[in-house]
Structures are given as C-alpha cells and as structure tokens.
Design a protein around this nucleic acid. Structure first.
Lengths: 106, 106
DNA sequence: TATATATGAAACCGAACGGTATCATGTCAA
DNA sequence: TTGACATGATACCGTTCGGTTTCATATATA
C-alpha cells in the first residue's frame, strides 16, 4: 500500500525537493530551468520532479518538447491535513488563533 | 547541514513513525509498549523512536529502567510552519473569488 | 532535411534505510 | 545477592535512495 500520503511525505523528506517546491511557488518552470537552480545533473533533478509528481505535489503540463512543472497546492494541502490529527495538542494560544481563523472562513 | 527541519521531515517519511506519533498522541508509552503495537522487533521500534527524537517530534523521560516516550507538539508545530511559505497558494477557491471581485471592481 | 534542443530512460555506484539477531548494561524485587 | 526485566548497542543484510553517465527519442528550426 503506497498511499498518496506516503508518497507525499516521502517527497518532502529530501531538502532538494522542498527547495524545488519553493522555487515552483514563484513560477512554473521546465526541467532545465529547475535544474539551473541546483548544483546537480538535469537527470537528478528530473528524478526529484518525478518523485514530487508521484507525491502529487506538482502538476506537469507537456507543451511540445518542453515540460512545464507547476506547484500543486492541493497536494500540499492534503499533507497539511495530516497534522489535523494532533489538533488537540497544539497549545492554547495557537488553538485560539486557529479557532479565529476557522470562524473567519465561515 | 542536518537541520532540525530536515530531521523532522525525514522522521515523517516513514509510515511506522507517523503511526507511532498518533499512538503517542493518545498516551505516552515505554518502548516495549510502543513495540506491542507493531509487527516488528523492539529493536526496530527503538530505532524509529530514536529517529523521532532526533527530529524533535517526541520527548523522552527516563524513569528508572523504563523510558517514557511522549509526543512533542512543538516539533510538529515547527514542521507545520514550513508550509506557511505557501500561504499565498492556499485556498485557490477564495483567491479566485478575490481576483474575480477585484477584476469586477475595475 | 539536417541539426540543435528538451526530455526520457536505463545501467551503475556508494550511502543510507528498515529490519533482524545477538549480546551487554542497568535496575527493580525477592 | 541473585535473577528477571527494560533498555542500549552493535554487527549484519537486502533494499531503496540520491546521484552520475550514457544513449535514445521527440520536436523546433534553419
């Protein structure tokens, strides 16, 4: 059972992949463009992008011979929701803040 | 550079460790007690607990010959805060609505 | 068509990972 | 003190991981 959650957390486990996500937050980029930002082979970056895609953290739009990688906020949100399990353990101050936010979103 | 953030995300990458965290959310447990909940050696569970401690996700209180493992909400909270970077990308629906409204007001 | 460009894919390598088995250590209790 | 019990620690093993190198494929473009 390799759940989407598992793939997502695995994807976040590597610092390079977390950096890629922050890169793509600013702008969607092709593989070569992403690779320009790192001191490693394009092939290595491609592997990281595949892992990120498997974790549903990025979406890919093929356009001719290029491949545009975009951040997928939904995937990140799903991982975020895992933390909800621990809601009862956040500290009171934070709980208050959270309540305020949730109330604000109604 | 093995930052606390890196250790934290690495700790979350394994499903067994995430399960241990949820276990400890209900109740602090000794190593043997945690191990009772999994189909693996106590030594293996001990390793997982060490990784969780390195990631600052659990705290350990030694009491005589036993070792009580407790959830550390602060560590989880620190990992949660990593997601704040993407705040501008959350709630696409609301952002879309906001854009629509702004466009409409021009 | 020929060529440069962007990516796909596979083999390979050392290191880290998840797990086991085994033995050592410290502590409680009779 | 002796023995049971909870844990510490280490060696070992197969697999996965992060990375490189190399070559193949597809697509713009001159």
């Amino acid at each position: 059972m390799t759940t989407s959650e598992q793939m997502g957390f695995r994807a976040l486990a590597d610092p390079t992949r977390r950096n890629i996500l922050q890169l793509l937050a600013h702008q969607s980029l092709t593989i070569a463009e992403v690779a320009d930002n790192f001191d490693m082979t394009r092939a290595a970056v491609k592997k990281h992008l595949t892992v990120l895609q498997d974790g549903n953290l990025i979406s890919v739009q093929v356009e001719g011979r290029t491949r545009l990688n975009a951040l997928n906020p939904d995937g990140l949100q799903q991982l975020l929701s895992w933390f909800d399990f621990f809601d009862a353990f956040w500290d009171t101050r934070l709980n208050t803040l959270k309540s305020a936010i949730e109330k604000d979103m109604q």
